[in-house]
Design a binder for these strands. Structure first.
Ligand SMILES: [Mn+2]
Ligand SMILES: [Mn+2]
Ligand SMILES: [Zn+2]
Ligand SMILES: [Zn+2]
Lengths: 129, 129
DNA sequence: TAATAAATAGGAATCATTCCTGTTTATAAA
DNA sequence: TTTATAAACAGGAATGATTCCTATTTATTA
């Protein structure tokens, strides 16, 4: 990968966002610094960054979300409000040991929990009263 | 849900397929029995079946795949050949206990392993010689 | 300074999925 | 059995996230 101002700015944007932005959200964010950035460039660079393991992709719903945190961690998605939280359930050691139990060569371990987040659950309970 | 010949046939098709068909593959399969079935009907019915927990959805790549096996199990996806295998890593008891450790209300536990399957790995090693 | 290939902007194309509309059908009440 | 009603349907149009294309710009190296 050659040095590129656009790609650097895109990477910074993903890392700066607290929670898992979409390509379009990165595009909007980067536009503030590079007004004529192309959406195609954002997709291309995000793809390259993901291919090189510099960022991660998260698939849930109909849009891909990106994660600047490449430490091993998991995610919880609330079906009610669409929030996507980090979860620390399995650490690197656990995942490493798990890989040895499988005949295939594992590169990624992606766990997605779904359900109702604590906030939405409380709101729901209130409405039932 | 009202009784429906189309939906029954769609469910049978998903259950009959050994491995995780896409909506279009279900469509093609069901067309043999109901030649004028609509693709929109397949999508609608698959959605209803999934909403009611009768089948599961698996997201990997740019197409949704469906799973007639609703027992708790996990999946491995080969990046080389696109195969999607079942994996039995965590059983119902494990998942149940895990749910109690999380503040949110968990409905689904979806684990997707990715990498290179044993067959592709062997082929790759051969080529290197 | 020149050559070269990677990277880019902008827009078109793709394609899985959803939406829409007029028609058919399952179900239950009259 | 007939009728009323809403669910389900077929067929086709629309949507929208993502990818592809092409002429131009730019980073890198010799
Ligand atoms: Mn994360
Ligand atoms: Mn399965
Ligand atoms: Zn929520
Ligand atoms: Zn393979």
């Amino acid at each position: 990968m050659r040095h590129s101002h656009q790609r650097n700015t895109i990477l910074e944007a993903v890392r700066a966002k607290p929670v898992h932005p979409t390509a379009y959200q990165v595009f909007e964010s980067v536009k503030e610094q590079i007004p004529n950035i192309s959406l195609a460039t954002v997709y291309r660079d995000l793809g390259q960054l993901a291919d090189n393991g510099i960022i991660n992709t998260i698939k849930k719903g109909n849009v891909v979300r990106y994660d600047g945190n490449t430490m091993i961690h998991q995610h919880f998605y609330c079906e009610e409000c669409g929030s996507l939280f980090d979860q620390e359930l399995f650490d690197e050691k656990f995942v490493f040991q798990l890989k040895t139990k499988i005949v295939h060569e594992i590169e990624n371990f992606d766990l997605m929990l779904t359900g109702t987040c604590i906030k939405c659950k409380n709101n729901g309970d209130k409405l039932k009263c």
